[in-house]
Design a protein around this nucleic acid. Sequence first.
RNA 1: GGGGCGUUAGCUCAGUCGGUAGAGCAGUUGGCUUUUAACCAAUUGGUCGUGCGUUCAAGUCGCACACGCCCCA
Length: 496
Amino acid sequence: MTEENQDENKLIAQRREKLTAIRAKRVAFPNDFVKEDTSSDLIKNHEAKTKKELDELAVTAVIAGRIIRMRGPFVVLQDGSGQMQIYINNKSYSDEQAEEIKSFDLGDIIGVHGEMFKTGKGELTLRAATFELLTKSLRPLPDKHKGLTDTEMRYRQRYVDLIVNEESRKIFQTRSRIMRFIRQYFESLDFMEVETPMMQVIPGGATARPFITHHNALDQEMYLRVAPELFLKRLVVGGFERVFELNRNFRNEGLSTRHNPEFTMLEFYQAYARYQDLMDLTENLFRKIAIDIGGSSKVSFQGSEYDFAEPFARLSVTDSIRKYCSVADDTVFASAESVAALANSLEVNFDENWSKGKILMEIFDQKVEAQIDQPTFITEYPIEVSPLARRNEENPEITDRFELIIGGRELANGFSELNDPEDQAERFKEQVAQKDSGDSEAMHFDQDYVTALEYGMPPTAGEGIGIDRLVMLFTDSASIKDVLLFPHMRPQQDPT
RNA sequence: GGGGCGUUAGCUCAGUCGGUAGAGCAGUUGGCUUUUAACCAAUUGGUCGUGCGUUCAAGUCGCACACGCCCCA
C-alpha cells in the first residue's frame, strides 16, 4: 500500500481533522511541558500506601506519556519507564475541556498534572487536575490485546512494535544491559575501549566478502570492515596491552536467522595471554552475564537449558568429528585423501582441490556444529583456515585457536595471535594465492600489518564474540532480526 | 539455490463444494462515569499482495512475480 493510499484511510483522515482543529486554536505541537515524574517511580514510591494514606498525603505528580488504553474515565498512559492509570472524568471539566477529552485517541501523547489516589479496586491512579495534549497521533495503533504480530511489520516498523509489544521492548533493554555489562567487565580488567576504522583500504581480519564503497575526493576504493582485528593488534604493537572494541562489522553475505549484513562484534586483545586464558575469561564472562541478566547461571534457549556455572566442554576439531560422526578409525585424519574419503562417506559437499584442513572444517560445519548443544570450546583448528593464528608448537598443522559453540551456533572465536612477521607474510601469500584461484573470501596481503609485526608484537591472545548471537542466547530469541532494532529487509514492492 | 507455508478492514483473524465479503478489537454517535480485555445500544469501514489465465461467475482453481516465515543445501 502506498503512503497516499494510507493517507486516504478514514481513521487517519478523522485524526487529521482533529489536528487541523487544534492548529486553528493553539500551538499544535507544544514543547514546553515539564514532566516531573515517571510512572515507575510513582509506583515504587506510592504503591504500598493505603487508599486512606494517599488521600491524606495529597501527593501531586506530573507525568507525560502515550495513551494506550481508554476505559471510560480511565486512561492508561505509557511512558519510558512503564504505565500509569489516569482518571479523567469529562463531567468534572468545562464543556470545552470535556470536548478535548472526548477527542483523545489511542496513541496520543498527553501531559497530566494531578493527585495520586487509589481506586475502589486498589489501583494506584493519577487524578488529572490539568491535562494537555502534547502530540497528536495520526495513525491508529495495532490491536490492543494482540499487539502487532506480523513479523514483517514488526521489523519494518519497529517503532510500532516497540509501542505495543512489551516483550520486544524488553529484548532491547536486555541488549543494552548486556552491552553495558560487557564494557564494565572489560574495564574492570584494565582493558581500554578503542575505535578503529570501519572504512578500510585493505579489508582484513576475517575470511569474508566485504562491501565496497568509494571515496570521491581521494578517488579511492574503500571497504567496510569485515573485522577490526588487524587494527587492534597494531594497537598492541603500539603498547596498548589490553584493548577491546564493541562495534559493527559488515559482511557481504546472505541473510538468515543468524546473519545480518551488519552485525555487532566484541573483539579484545590481551598481551602476555594465551588462548587458554581467553577460554577461561569467556566462561567467566558468560556466567556473569547470565547472572546479571537473569539472576541465575542457568539460561534456557529454544528448548535447551544451559548452566553457565558448569565448566564448558573442550574438544578438538578432530575429536568432535570422531564423536558426532561416529568415526572409529583414527587413520582417516592422516592424509588429505583419507579426509576427502571421509567427507564423501558422510555426504559432505566440498571441492576436491581443497586442502585437508579445509575439508575437515567443511565436515565440521556441515555435520558437527549443529549437533553441539551444550557450551563447548572446539580447539585445534587447521592452519589453512586460521591465517592470523599462532601455529601450535607440537603439531604444525594446527593452530592455538578455539571457537565457542552453544546451541549449534558459533558464539566466539579466539586464538593465540601469530606475532611472527615472517610466518604472517607467508600466510598472507597463501591467502592471496587462494584469492587468485577464485576464493572471494580469502584475505588481502596487508604489508603495513606485517611491518607492524616487524616492530614486535608481544605474545598476545585475542578473541571475537558475536554480540547479536549472544543477545539471542540470553533473550531466547530464534532470529537475529529479533535482537536487531532495524534488521536489514528487502525493499517493499511499489504497487504502481 | 531447492522445497513448504503465508499475504482478506487500521490491527488480530474466519471465509465450506467457485455463486453479492464476515467476526472481535479500533473508529463514529449516544448512554454510563472508581473501570480492569470496562460495560450497554446503534453504526461506518474492503483494489481479498500484484499481474495474467480458466470459467457464465474467482478471496476460493491454474501460472508467473513480489514480500515474509520455516526447513534443506
